[in-house]
Nucleic acid binder design. Structure first.
Lengths: 295, 295
DNA sequence: CATTGGCATACCGAAAACATATGGGTTGAC
DNA sequence: GTCAACCCATATGTTTTCGGTATGCCAATG
């Protein structure tokens, strides 16, 4: 069963004439006549009653005609749907984000995305530092909004912004009375650290900062998210050095102060598989850049 | 968009491999690979991600795949439906019948038909002597159960039985006391006649009968149906010469008597367009023969 | 480094489709 | 009644497309 024959069949059925249909199909009449007869041979029954004034569907022909239109439409629709997905007008994108960015970026990013790609299904998944590469590689997320960026040969990274490091402390801490805290004042104080994968420049940035100032802070806890870090800070377990945007999600009782003599920052990046060529990724990147630029 | 390509596409998508799909399709791998690429060219986007371990649908491919299966199924279903209709397993048949047969034949014929062709839509339409040809010719009925048969060059007739002519009279008529009425006794009595189209052998049969016996009956009324005829008989307007089966629908007060020295009868026939080749007509004919044989 | 597995390309023969030309049957007009 | 017009079917040659075989390329594996 060939779709072209079905298309010819429908044309002839609608025109009630081989000649008229051939004209509409921009082809000669004889080959169309042949194709119709081949279709009838394939079905095993006459589909048209040949009259002297044209052709007319038989009952069997009517039965086929009833389905043929739908089948043609469905095939065309499938092709169109594929094109729409390929072009980014339709589809699905699964956005991974790290918790530290949830408060600062997502509330503005989500409406921006819905405006830019209205036909696209969006879904969101929180990523942790230890699983984000895997989620990209197994395609369970299409793009990841990361802080800091991922470094992996299969993963493409676009840096879209950065956030300065700040000191997070309990509001009762004596340091909180300072407008900006000199790094030297941190010497010997307990530090709540985020995970430290080998190539992760997040804690590297903190480590580098302390090293540069020859300050040592004993690590009292390692936690997965900035939220946990701030909880421990509130509990008085120690201090944390976090990107400024974390401040938005800080509990009452935790305050942030700039570090006076440090300009260190952590990158915000959009990351995706190198072999994902969906145009939705570009669109997502544009939206994210726009939102992050206004932080 | 070719249905074969769509079939190939589905096979590759399901096998997640060109080679495996080619095997399942009983063809070599290279031409299948070529067809897939042609489909991708037609869509204008890659449908598969080529990995080192096989092929995997892209998002666009998934969009197409979601519709492709349905389109294939619908096309196959259309072909099957056409075959089913052509073979008589499915379809629709519109049965025309003349009123005179309604009581004697339909109550047995309808269940017989439903048993024989369970997948077929049946509908019934009463025909009158003056419209039955037209209803067949314009295909508003597929077959007609007629009494007497139709004679027309475009219409095929199968005689399936006959009914003897009987005399219908009011129960109070002196003739009703006889077991059988000699035709000679009808001389001069008023006759309720059925319509008399030129080639209609119904009234011809009655006319021939009377002529043969050299009996003259003045015609006092012409009516369309035996029902009307019997009503007029009941009203005392005259007598009617009707097929025996009309007796079943006779109102109380009208009785039938055989004609002693006449064996005249009227045919029961199934009629259909010569160019209708539906196998349902054969089946219908068989059912009608079976039912009429038991009258 | 060789081998294996999987897809892509090249080329050739076969089959299918299309166009042109023509035949046959019916309708309708002069 | 003949003739023209109309419409579908058939015939034949050319072009397109399809499928098969041979082979190349690349990556993963041992």
């Amino acid at each position: 069963m060939d779709l072209r024959r079905l298309r010819y069949f429908v044309a002839v059925a609608e025109a009630r004439s081989v000649g008229k249909a051939a004209e509409r199909l921009r082809m000669a009449q004889p080959p169309l006549s042949v194709q119709i007869r081949k279709l009838e041979a394939e079905i095993g029954a006459p589909l048209f009653r040949r009259g002297t004034r044209g052709m007319d569907l038989t009952e069997a022909g009517q039965a086929l005609f009833a389905r043929a239109g739908e089948a043609l439409a469905l095939a065309a629709d499938g092709a169109e749907a594929a094109r729409a997905v390929a072009s980014g007008r339709r589809g699905r994108i699964s956005v991974g984000y790290m918790f530290v960015l949830a408060n600062a970026v997502l509330p503005r990013l989500i409406p921006e995305l819905r405006r830019s790609i209205p036909g696209v299904d969006l879904d969101f998944a929180e990523l942790t530092a230890s699983t984000r590469e895997a989620r990209l590689l197994d395609r369970s997320v299409t793009v990841a909004l990361c802080m800091p960026a991922i470094h992996h040969p299969e993963i493409q990274v676009a840096r879209i912004g950065a956030q300065p490091l700040m000191l997070a402390m309990p509001i009762r801490s004596p340091l909180a009375r300072l407008g900006a805290v000199p790094v030297a004042r941190l010497q010997g104080r307990p530090l709540i650290a985020l995970p430290h994968p080998d190539q992760d420049p997040a804690s590297s940035a903190v480590a580098a900062l302390l090293r540069r100032h020859q300050v040592v802070m004993p690590i009292v806890s390692r936690v997965e998210t900035v939220h946990s870090a701030m909880s421990l800070v509130l509990a008085g377990e120690g201090l944390a050095i976090l990107p400024a945007c974390a401040q938005l999600g800080a509990p009452r009782g935790v305050v942030f102060r700039p570090l006076r003599d440090a300009t260190d920052s952590i990158d915000i990046a959009v990351c995706w598989r190198r072999d994902s060529h969906s145009p939705l990724i570009r669109t997502f990147l544009k939206c994210a850049e726009k939102v992050v630029a206004r932080l």
